[in-house]
Design a protein around this nucleic acid. Structure first.
Lengths: 343, 343
DNA sequence: TTGTATGCGTTATCAT
DNA sequence: ATGATAACGCATACAA
């Protein structure tokens, strides 16, 4: 294994000082004579010079790296977010470290610590931890934080929120507008603000229409896993249908769960949407690939990632005022809801 | 923004040398008296000391960072791989940089260069580029490479392959065993070894059974995107069914495409599997969530990620001999294939 | 325009 | 057991 060539090696080969080499190879605006510049560039190329960014970064105190902490990359929603983040990061010559917190606050904190040690100055996080003290204590160390998906209260952290409450209400009202009055809601364990908001949106929409809510909540949520969500969708839909007065429509807190609901219904030989309607939440792409195509509330995942990264870049450039963004839900009307107003 | 405290600051506060501080805080085995050790640890804690790993890494010439280059994190197969990688990386206190090459060789090379500049010593790559010279030239700079999914010929790069050929044959034979004789194959543009192998597995299985192959290939593949695959699945299935002698079973080169096939068939009021059978490839989780659950060839994605990262860690530790791994396909028999042997 | 010298924060070698 | 000092590779203030 050859040892790498440094600017000093090149300086020696070109009979110049390493300062001059640095000026040339770092594209500094500092004036260097044309002939020396060309000579140095030629030698650098011939010797296959590769700069060691650790040296530069140590000197400049900037690692040109940002990080994303999300519950799990397996979740298509988060992989779309990450995809958006990575796209704009690349445009700014930044590199992205991905961290799966697995819904584990301790792991989340461990990651944050490591990232700061690695001199990551920008972080996009969907935080699961209750205790945000660690994160906040790092703000005055030059860490810039954007909270996505899960809000972080307090100063100095920009938010890209999604109006979960409105989304929950929107889905429920859509069902109501289609003539449904018995509308069930199935949800993963309500252990986070986002889930609480969706549920409250549902509850308020039911209440203001004078309807009786029917909620089934999954008991635990240790494993963050698509199949797990699917299975609890099945189980909870079963519970709902076993009630004395079963719903004519079911609203699920995410699309995976909605898939489970549909699956359980079809196992019971109930057709969607003929016999019962289903609405999901997230609007992931596969939703349009199943049968019937799933009506859902779209959360702009990819766009959220792009916006988050743009904001982060602006923050790190100290450009302009800080602000939060609240993304609005959108109804993706597909084929899983039946209009029963005529019945 | 406070300036960060360094070991020198702590040394001053503790009236010791920075060497001693370093010994304590880096958990060196070098002997330091108990009282000094405790004192330094106390002061470090009180002053909220956070080590700057850039300094350490520059000195040690190791960045404790690996990278993964994949076509797109949007693809559930690759997000599972990444999930596996990240899991074992974390266990080794490594951090993972994610790069989406978007099937663009130029972008892939750009990433590789940047990563090497960042002193990343380990790379797991599903390479799309034809020209592997850049990659190989970096091997003797201490870069360790594991090729997944797409083989890279040559020395010094370990492979974690998947037996695509066998997988293609396995799916085809399964269909044959269920009595199908007109079996169509739909595939994305055959522009990579993996896709070629699957197709050849299909062709050989057809040939050795004395059957006529029916292949539909998607013309282009610029955009790597689930919805795009879905749409070409629909289109190609349509072409197949419009033939004078349409198939009784369709095999698709990936699950997304199989979803498209099923969708197009159901649009034509053909039931799967009653009227026509479908087999996918990849075995992604959502395959079991659709109706009917998709029979598919399982590629062990998550396990592949874990193995790749383990191998990489061993390589970087210089532990043991180098070897390649060929993962074997597995038939995931679900509900999208009908047995017509009795008909 | 070029060179000299210093420091970024850390570890490690060599004295003491 | 502890300290002084020299790297690691780079950028830059200052000198020439």
């Amino acid at each position: 294994m050859n040892k790498p060539v440094t600017i000093h090696d090149i300086a020696r080969m070109a009979n110049v000082s390493s300062a001059t080499v640095s000026r040339v190879l770092s594209n500094s605006s500092y004036p260097v004579s044309k002939e020396l510049k060309e000579k140095i560039q030629r030698i650098a190329k011939e010797s296959n010079y590769i700069p060691n960014l650790l040296g530069k970064q140590l000197k400049m105190n900037s690692s040109m790296t940002i990080a994303v902490i999300i519950p799990s990359i397996i979740n298509p929603f988060y992989s779309s977010v990450l995809f958006g983040v990575e796209e704009v990061a690349r445009q700014h010559n930044f590199t992205v470290i991905t961290c799966n917190s697995l819904q584990d606050p301790a792991l989340e904190d461990e990651y944050i610590r490591t990232l700061v040690e690695k001199q990551v100055k920008g972080l996009i996080i969907s935080s699961i931890s209750k205790d945000k003290r660690l994160l906040k204590s790092l703000l005055d160390r030059g860490l810039h934080v954007i909270a996505i998906d899960q809000k972080i209260e307090g100063e100095g952290i920009s938010q890209i929120e999604f109006d979960y409450h409105k989304g929950g209400a929107m889905a429920t009202r859509h069902l109501q507008a289609k003539g449904h009055r018995q509308i069930g809601y199935v949800t993963s364990k309500i252990d986070r603000p986002s889930r609480r908001s969706i549920c409250q949106g549902y509850l308020e929409a039911m209440q203001s229409a004078g309807l009786e809510p029917m909620v089934e909540e999954s008991p635990a949520d240790e494993v963050y896993n698509a199949v797990y969500e699917f299975d609890s969708g099945k189980r909870l839909a079963g519970k709902l249908m076993d009630r004395p007065n079963p719903p004519t429509a079911i609203f699920a807190c995410n699309d995976m769960m909605a898939f489970g609901v549909i699956n359980e219904l079809s196992r019971r030989e109930l057709q969607v949407p003929q016999d019962i309607s289903v609405v999901g939440f997230d609007g992931i792409d596969v939703g349009q690939m199943i049968h019937p195509p799933l009506t859902s509330i779209k959360q702009p995942d990819y766009e959220m990632g792009k916006m988050a990264c743009k904001m982060l870049m602006d923050m790190m450039d100290d450009a302009g005022p800080m602000f939060d963004i609240v993304l609005q839900p959108k109804l993706l009307e597909r084929k899983s809801v039946r209009d029963i107003t005529g019945d």
